[in-house]
Each structure stands twice: as C-alpha cells, then as structure tokens.
Design a protein around this nucleic acid. Structure first.
Lengths: 343, 343
DNA sequence: GAATCATCTCAAACCGCTTTGGATTTCTCA
DNA sequence: TGAGAAATCCAAAGCGGTTTGAGATGATTC
C-alpha cells in the first residue's frame, strides 16, 4: 500500500492525501478524517526511503563506535547510554544508526555519513582532550553533540557532561574528612578528557589541604576488573600503602575489592573505596545501602539528554551551541570509613 | 556533488557513470577509469537515500531492543554482541539500525520496520521458549536470524546458538568429578530459552549420577551482581549448604563471590564456582589463569556469525533456514577445587 | 451581479539514483 | 564489402513520497 494507491481508493490526489496525513492546514477537516481513517484501515505507513529522498532529511542520528584492531574494549557504559538515547529517538520518530568501525577510519566514517546523507547529526562519544572530531564535524557541517567535553578545544560546540572535576574533588574531601591522607587514584585512561578532569579534582582537593599528590598513588588504565585488581594489588603491597582508593568505575572497583580481599583486608574497615557510579542497569551498586560509596550520575539519563540536545540542534541549526553540566551526587555506602588508627 | 553533475563534467550520461561506478560490464574500461578518477577527485559518494529508493533495498539491518517501562535492565552482553555484528555490517556496506522501544510495542516495531521499508532484515535477541516474534516475522516476511533458539517453536528458522545444554552438563559433571554433590544453580530468568537449556543440562548431569536436583539449590533471576549475591547468600546460610555453584554469568558471579567472602569462606577452597563466560571485553575473566572456571563462548564472535548469516539470508531469500550451534569451551580457573573433606 | 477572497484540491516537478530498452558505433568474418 | 554481433553509450521511466504553483468552488462584499 502506498500513497498513490491510497489516493486512488479515496478518489483524491496524492497531494491532498499527503497533506491530510501530515497535518497541513489547507485541507478540509472532513477530508482529513476520511483520509486518516483509510490510512488506518489499510495499515498504510509512508515509505521511509521515499520520505528521506523527498525531504532531504534522513531522520536518523549516527553513533560511531570505534573499535581498535583486535580485542579492544567496548565501553561498558555504552549499552545504557544507547538505551537512554534510543528512547529519545523512538519518541521523536528518529532512527539510530550505529557504525562500528576500526578506530583509524573513524574520521572517514564521519565524512561518509555526511556525504552519503545517511544521518542528520551525530553523537560524539568519549572525547579526548584535543579531540580532532570536533573541528572535523564543524568543518564538514554535520550537526553534533558531544557526550563529555574536550578541554583542549576552544571553539564553541554543544555538549552534555558530568561535573567530573567537582565530583572527584568532593569525594577526595570526603576521604580527607575521614582522616585518610594516603589516598590513591585508580583512574581511567588519561587521554580521555573526563579522566583528566577527575584527576585535577583529586589533585586540587589534596593540595587545598596541603597534601602533594603522590605519583605512586596514581594510575591510569582501562577501566576493567583486571586492571583495577593489578593497580590496587601493587599499591597495597607498598610499605606505606594507601588507606583509601578513588576508583573511576564500578567495574575497576570490583578488581580493587578483589585485591583488597586477597591482601586479607576488609573493605570499608581497613581500606576505604569511593567509586564513580554510572548507575548501569546491570551493575547496580547494592540496594537500600550501596555497596560502594560513590559519586553517582546516570549515564542513561545522560543519553537521553544528549539525544534531546542533538535533535534540538538539528531542528534549529542556527542557534548557538548549547551546554549542559550535570552534577553527580555523592552517595554513602559501605565501602568507606574512618582512616585506620583514627577511631 | 551528485551523479548528474559528475556526468555533466565528464560529458557522459548519468547512466554510463552509474554503470561505470557499479562495475557493470557494458562500459569501456578506459571510460570506467576516467569516471573512477573523477569520482575520486571530486570526492563523490552516491546519496544513500537515493540508492535506497531506487533499488528498493535499505542496506540496513535492524536490532530491536525492548526496554521495560522503567529502570529495566539492559543486557550487559549487548555491547559486545553489537560490536561483533557491527563489524560485519561495516565490512559489507550495511548500516545497523537500533530501535530501543518499550517492550509492549516490540511487535508493532517489527511491523513498522517492515512497512516503512526501513530495514532488509532483523536480528532477534534473547528468545523466549515460545517466542511469538518468530512466527510474526515469518508472517510479515521480514528476513531474520535468531541469536539463540526458541525450543517451543517447531517451524524452521535460522539461528545461531551456543550449546548451553552441553556446556552446563559438562560443567556439572566436572564438579561431580571433583566430589561435589551439593551443587547449586544460579540461573538466569527461566523464561529465556538459554536458561531452560542450561538447567536441563545441569539436571540431567546430576540425574545421570543418581542425584535428584534439589529445588532449594536452584534459583532463577536477573543476571545482576545483586541478584547473584542474594541467591548465594541465602543458600550458604542453609544447614546443608552447597559446596559448589553453577552461575549463569560473570556478573552474577561477582555477587556470588561477594556472598562467599561475606560468609567468611574462600572461593576455590571452601566453595567452588563455575560460571558461563561470554568473554566480554570489559569483563575479562582474569588473565593467564582465569579467575573463574568457566564455560566460555565469545558473544562478540556470535554477533559476527549471526550478522553474517542474516546478510546471507537477505541475499538468498529462497534458501532453507540455516542453523549454527557453537560449542562452549570449559576452561579451568581458580574458582574450583575438590569438594571440602574429600582431599 | 461582478469582483474579491478564502478554502480546498490537483497536476506536475523534484529528490538522486538505478535500470530498461533502444540507438549508435565498432568489430568480426564469410 | 556488407550483414550480423559485440561493444558502448544514452534517453527516459521509474522508486514513493513532498511541495510548488495554479485552478476550481463557493462565500462574501460592494
């Protein structure tokens, strides 16, 4: 069933039928209802391919997921972020296009998405400090919103980010208030902008209490269980081991916990841990009382917000770039307590 | 830059240019090279929207992700599965379309994808025992491949699945051989087909050694850390607690491990654990020596295979449905040992 | 009663590509 | 040399919608 057929059945022209269905004012209300009813009855759905060609819009948003050559890590927050963004797209009649590409072809991918006219805009994931994608997208004129920020980029662009700096600043202060002074940072990869901001929050909080950050207490690696385990294990073996850990993610923290237990220590008593909790649906941080004390910010909600902003940018291309900074909440769980020997 | 313009520049007709670019035989080799060079020079990319309308194909595959009303779980294997499938699509010039929809509109979503002509085929995720999607898709004539199987469906259809029954059968036997007799099963939700198959492998292995499955030793729930923790905690508190656990996923198992440690026991010594390991990139099961003894099967590889099968089904719609059964490997880690009191 | 104006509807162009059905030119070989 | 075959290339008709510009109809105004 297509427009023309439907029009013939109704004894109307395709023009009128199209206008009736799309809510244009120049069609009689009675006619419109008749058309609507017929469309419903015949189960008519306009062909997406035709709409896209005719309107010059693709009603689709692209997400480019770079994957390094072999066995590279898929970001674990990805599923929840996508779920959030996807809800927004569905609600607004947009499709979500995922491109999984080798990371050295990411730039080409954006260019092609634009040239092919496959999408109306894209979301930029996991920005680095000097992320070249931002200028690229501006240059080729493909609307975009960044999930996160790129501190090294000075041109204005739209983004949604968590206040990572403040979150880690607060978390560090919280540990300091508990009497900890040997606080370690198990960070994500520090070419990622969010990781840099977290570290600066941590370093500054220490500095404001006159503590110089100890390089031996700072690591930066993939946010995996195994990496978290190694980092914590190594630090716990030191003569003056840390009494507290600031950990970049729930998953890293599971490795940290494993290392703590392997060392015969008890988390929350001998060693305190604060994590950043993305509120992943499959990795809830406990129930009534959280397992880990955490700075929490829902990545799913972020997905919704980023998607909404992008649809807005697409709809109103001439407005100035928008920004939205989300604050993380500090929630107290069972993984923190006073520094040992201070009670 | 579009076809017509390019043709004008070259002094050729759009027909010839199109044929030259698409490798049709009826164009002079010299002409083809001239066209190719011009296309490259001008950075020409055919407009996807136009190709789709003209060919009647969308060169896109749909993945429908149902999300229950509020705060429902996103399947943690999703990211890796998508990464695998996405690689296949990219390599073959297909786009991946993700639809995140409320779970009560899933059926409508498939219908609309078909009516709108948005995709050439779909992947069916997480089939239930009597999954209505299979007959629906057959009825509306939308090509599909199921990741998993639906035991209750007798019509033939294409699928790629892991031999879950055998995997859990072997794992159970392995524990029995170690002298365990009180073996618990912490399963996924048993309306999922794979969970049913796993249970039957477990039950049958016990039965073949003359052991009747104890209902108190079998639970079925979401595969989350918290659920795993609760299930294990409850069982470990029993008078005759299990000495071994068979756990449906790495994430559940992290909860199980937490419960074991909370009970003052040592995993691998007091309590053995075998998990099913989907080989998630962000949740590697240890390194040289796995943390958990596991039945392992890469979900990313499964994604690749499912996608390849679907592209094949789309290309050759008339061939009979295909099936592919993958075997899981049983890998020995540090979480299993002889039953206590047997050494 | 003619002129003006809304209101409603339609024919046709267009989006950018593919593909059918020739037309034209060049080869081939008796 | 000339007919048939092969090799090239092209005009035009879709694909299924949207949208422009104009026509038809009926109501309103002077």
């Amino acid at each position: 069933m297509n427009l023309k057929e439907l029009a013939t059945q109704l004894g109307l022209s395709p023009t009128t039928v199209s206008r009736a269905l799309n809510g244009y004012p120049e069609v009689n209300e009675a006619t419109r209802e008749r058309v609507m009813a017929a469309a419903k009855r015949t189960n008519y759905r306009p062909n997406t391919r035709a709409i896209r060609l005719a309107t010059g819009r693709s009603l689709a948003v692209g997400h480019v997921i770079p994957i390094a050559t072999r066995h590279e890590i898929v970001n674990p927050i990805f599923a929840d972020f996508i779920a959030g963004a996807g809800e927004t797209y569905s609600r607004n009649g947009y499709d979500m296009l995922l491109s999984v590409v080798a990371d050295d072809t990411e730039e080409t991918t954006y260019r092609e998405l634009k040239l092919r006219g496959a999408v109306d805009g894209v979301i930029v994931h996991s920005p680095r400090t000097h992320d070249p994608r931002i200028e690229l997208l501006r240059d080729i004129g493909l609307p975009f919103v960044v999930h996160g920020r790129a501190s090294g980029i000075s041109i204005p662009y739209s983004w949604v980010d968590v206040n990572n700096r403040r979150a880690f600043h607060r978390a560090t202060e919280f540990l300091l208030d508990l009497g900890h002074s040997r606080i370690a940072l198990i960070n994500g990869l520090e070419y990622m902008d969010f990781a840099v901001r977290r570290r600066s929050g941590y370093v500054d909080a220490l500095a404001s209490r006159g503590i110089a950050a100890n390089p031996a207490f700072m690591t930066s690696d993939q946010m995996t269980e195994v990496a978290g385990f190694h980092a914590a294990q190594k630090m716990l073996a030191m003569a003056n081991a840390p009494t507290a850990f600031l950990v970049a993610s729930m998953i890293s923290a599971m490795g940290v916990r494993r290392a703590i237990e392997a060392a015969g220590l008890v988390m929350g008593r001998d060693v305190s841990v604060i994590i950043h909790d993305d509120d992943l649906s499959y990795l809830q941080n406990g129930e009534a009382v959280p397992i880990f004390t955490a700075t929490r910010s829902s990545v799913r909600e972020a997905g919704r917000l980023v998607a909404e902003m992008l649809l807005h940018v697409i709809a109103e291309p001439q407005v100035a770039p928008q920004q939205r900074l989300l604050e993380a909440e500090l929630i107290i769980g069972q993984s923190t307590g006073p520094a040992p020997g201070r009670l």
